[in-house]
């Protein structure tokens, strides 16, 4: 609608709207838009981190990173980590949500406790897990030895593929409560009458899960998968604290590579180029997510 068509009252409301949204837009620009543009800008320079000085190199940072094996291996690790941890999160999360949706004693308590991993600080969680994984006095190795599964303690974080599997497992443990909350919220809004109609139509428990529950969960699962894929793809602290990207670079994902370039190798320009490429990759998920949201709004 053109401004000329607006009544004075509508114009007043429009002005009020601008005043109310203004501070948010300013903060958004300061913390999102400015760093984003800076990153793209910095990626065109070869910069020494301590001095933040350097020379214009154009797109050569990008050419260099695409030619580097380390980028591709990190991207591969990143994909394995994201797909692995996300699959486990969805399986554990949906399974747990279905259990917590049943009528059972202490349901409220169980629903609260299940959130614990999600709310505990990553540093604390990783410290606890490092103790559990410890090869000398970790409880996991204690069980492995006790059950006779192995004569020697397993090196959970220092050898491959154990390290990647351990990281994936801890990631799944840390983030599956998010899936539980979102799925449970959706499960509670599925009308009982759908299940009752299905019972009368002759559907057994398994048919009811596939014909009623799962189709009803589809929308929320798509959103969960897209959001968690974005968040898991850029996960840094959990992996860095647990393995530091090691052994060698076996669990090094792109965010860890960005950190290494920026603060270990002091190549801020190169680090920015990695970060920009990573953003471009995540943009695919974001576009899918936005499209999906818009479709639902229509």
């Amino acid at each position: 609608m053109a401004t000329a068509d607006l009544s004075p009252l509508e114009r007043k409301y429009a002005r009020l709207g601008i005043v109310l949204i203004g501070p948010t837009v300013l903060v958004f620009c300061a913390v999102i838009v400015y760093p984003l543009i800076s990153a793209i800008y910095l990626s065109l320079f070869s910069i020494y981190t301590p001095t933040l000085e350097g020379e214009w190199v154009g797109l050569s940072n990008y050419a260099e990173l695409l030619a580097k094996g380390e980028f591709w291996s990190s991207l591969w690790t990143n994909i394995i980590w994201t797909v692995g941890t996300l699959t486990l999160q969805i399986l554990f999360g949906v399974g747990m949500a279905l259990i917590l949706h049943q009528n059972m004693i202490f349901r409220s308590l169980a629903r609260s406790l299940i959130l614990f991993p999600y709310f505990v600080s990553t540093v604390v969680a990783v410290l606890v897990w490092r103790w559990l994984f410890n090869d000398l006095y970790g409880i996991l190795n204690h069980f492995v030895m006790w059950t006779g599964a192995s004569d020697m303690p397993v090196d959970w974080l220092g050898s491959m593929p154990n390290a990647l599997l351990s990281v994936i497992l801890v990631g799944a443990w840390k983030y599956f409560p998010f899936v539980v909350i979102a799925t449970l919220a959706r499960l509670q809004t599925i009308p009982d009458s759908l299940y009752e109609a299905a019972k009368i139509d002759g559907a057994g428990p398994i048919a009811r899960f596939f014909d009623v529950t799962l189709p009803q969960l589809r929308d929320v699962l798509v959103v969960i998968i897209m959001l968690r894929a974005i968040w898991d793809f850029k996960e840094f602290d959990l992996i860095y604290l647990l393995t530091g990207g090691g052994p060698v670079t076996s669990t090094q994902t792109i965010p860890l590579l960005v950190y290494k370039e920026a603060f270990a190798l002091n190549q801020m320009g190169m680090a920015s180029a990695y970060a920009v490429v990573m953003m471009a990759l995540m943009l695919v998920f974001m576009i899918l997510y936005i499209r999906r949201t818009q479709e639902n709004e229509l």
Partner: peptide, 29 residues
């Protein structure tokens, strides 16, 4: 069980399966 009583029920909320077409809804039983 309800499915074996040879009854059919129409619900106040209709309880149609939202992801199925009209044809699939009617054909479901």
């Amino acid at each position: 069980p309800p499915g074996k009583r040879d009854i059919a029920m129409v619900f106040q909320s209709y309880a149609l399966y939202p992801h199925m077409t009209v044809e699939q809804n009617i054909a479901y039983p």
